[in-house]
Design a protein around this nucleic acid. Structure first.
Lengths: 230, 230
DNA sequence: CCAAAAGTGTTGTTACTACACCCATGC
DNA sequence: GCATGGGTGTAGTAACAACACTTTTGG
């Protein structure tokens, strides 16, 4: 019975991005099993018997970060025959954007996880460098068209914080006057009464994301990024 | 030896689009094996032992259409446990854009393949309807930003033909005056001396795609589609 | 000479960029 | 009162959408 074909392993690997207010970062773990034990790696795992791909990605992310309900998107499937030297494994890569403050730090120890600045990512196993590159490209692409970078910020955030994040993602300075206008014109933000005074005497107003509008406008091809950067 | 995990089958399914000058169409085959024998299906196949995913997709497409060098893009991986009732199979879907004229018709018989208008696609097996929907969404998304629809046309084509194709893809009328201006301003087309007189007494000039510019501008977020349609 | 499709021109509007300045406040 | 980031204002430009007309040519 069955199709009489060679079966292979299917894994899910997660590229987890976080933003600490200064730097865009990547969450990596020290691999616990052979081969390549103790080298840096993306967090991954094999799919369970009763699990779909999205479910596996969510489970892995929960294990690693303690977080449900994070932004998670399928990136690409990788299937070169020798990408895993032990046994043929097709890997479906997902990328996640999380609020680094919600991330539970206890899990650091359990998985020997660490946050790395994007420009200081260490050597990674297998084809994980390719996955990281693809994830970064995809985020740039997506963020130019859709409001996804909010997922990296806390519930309350200031516009200068948001701008700094965009500048990180695109590795380019952005004119703050034009940025503020575009963001506020989008109608996606709800101004709070409170101010963040940690960065200036005057203080910057906090904003919350209007989740309603965010959902309805997600496909509306926003353009927070000046064309000159693209 | 190995990871001691449950292995599953990995297949590739191809969503093949073609354009006959009038209608955007989908190439489907009559499934030759159980289960669901004789029902309509996407063309697919299991990955070979020495084959990566892209390679499998190219092989399947060659078998079905006789074509090398077609536009082929990975769409999404599908892995719900019961999506194939016989044996657990993860499928990586690819979509292809081909010039329907180059397609070799002999293969029709071998695979009992047929072209279907997009609005007249029959019931499909498994989760293939979901794949077709996703492919269509992706093409709309991609075509709004990148010049991919040229892949569906013959080497020489007229601007009215190209416009009709865009109108098919977006199922909306487009102003021909604005369309012509945008397309010509893109610099992607090389005007030919010859005219196509099949549709009018006056005749419409043929154009070829400037492959050089096409490659270099592929990422430059072209916008042939009026924002009102999006 | 006329029908029918191909192609050119114009105009108002919007969205964007590139600028310089004022504002609030803790020290 | 002044230094420091936060926020507002403006003007020139480019891209776009909405619109009407002229051109070509086989019959």
């Amino acid at each position: 019975m069955g199709y009489n074909q060679t079966a292979v392993l299917v894994a899910v690997d997660c590229i987890v991005f976080g933003y600490d207010g200064e730097q865009l970062k990547l969450l990596l773990i020290k691999r616990a099993i052979e081969p390549e034990k103790d080298r840096w790696s993306l967090m991954g795992g094999f799919i369970g018997d009763d699990e779909n791909l999205d479910g596996a990605a969510k489970r892995i992310l929960l294990q690693l970060t303690g977080l449900h309900d994070v932004y998670l998107e399928q990136l690409h499937a990788y299937g070169t025959p020798d990408r895993d030297p032990i046994e043929r494994t097709v890997s479906v890569a997902y990328f996640a954007l999380i609020d680094i403050n919600k991330y539970s730090k206890q899990l650091n120890d359990q998985y020997h996880a660490e946050w790395f600045k994007l420009k200081e990512v260490p050597d990674l196993i297998f084809d994980h460098p390719k996955m990281v590159k693809a994830a970064m490209d995809k985020i740039r692409y997506q963020a130019a068209l859709h409001p996804i970078l909010f997922e990296l910020l806390p519930k309350k955030f200031t516009i200068p914080q948001l701008q700094a994040l965009y500048e990180q993602v695109y590795d380019s300075p952005i004119d703050n006057r034009n940025f503020i206008r575009k963001i506020t014109a989008s109608g996606l933000l709800i101004k709070q009464a409170e101010k963040d005074k940690s960065n200036s005497r005057r203080g910057a107003f906090y904003f919350k994301l209007d989740r309603q509008k965010h959902r309805s406008q997600f496909q509306s091809f926003l353009n927070f990024i000046p064309k000159s950067i693209k």
